[in-house]
Design a protein around this nucleic acid. Structure first.
Length: 124
DNA sequence: ACGATGACGTTAT
DNA sequence: TATAACGCCATCG
């Protein structure tokens, strides 16, 4: 038999990030730093944005549910303007924005259960 | 291989 | 609210 069995749950950072983002409930949001921390690398929030930016349009990962710690939609480097799409998708899920275009994190932030937290680092 | 630069960020001041 | 400093990583010359 094989010496080491391939993991059923994502192990590397990239896959783990996508897995976690996929667990954000509809109508909730998480921050880049939050996802990075859950993935085990609290200082890699920026890397999370990089990963999400590489997603193909075919992906079903709810990338739009990830915003920055200030409750604002982060600016993209490329002038493509996926930002407006992100806001539209969030509003379609019932998330509201303040006049200054900010999300009230206190009301919409995703608070993963302890089980989900453990499940993201260990096997389910 | 090395330093500089930019990026979908975060925190402290 | 605005600005500075920091940290991790990919890309480029």
């Amino acid at each position: 038999m094989s010496g080491r069995t391939p993991p059923k749950q994502p192990q590397n950072f990239d896959a783990l990030v996508l897995h976690l983002v996929g667990r954000i409930p509809k109508g909730c949001v998480a921050t880049y730093g939050q996802i990075a921390a859950l993935a085990g690398k609290p200082r890699n929030s920026r890397q999370v944005g990089k990963i999400l930016g590489r997603l193909s349009s075919k992906s079903t990962v709810p990338w739009h549910r990830v915003v920055n710690a200030q409750g604002r939609i982060s600016q993209r480097a490329e002038p493509h303007g996926t930002e407006s799409l992100q806001r539209r998708l969030l509003e379609a899920e019932g998330i509201t924005f303040t006049k200054s275009g900010r999300i009230r994190m206190m009301a919409f932030a995703w608070e993963p259960s302890i089980e989900e937290f453990l499940g993201s680092r260990l096997k389910s």
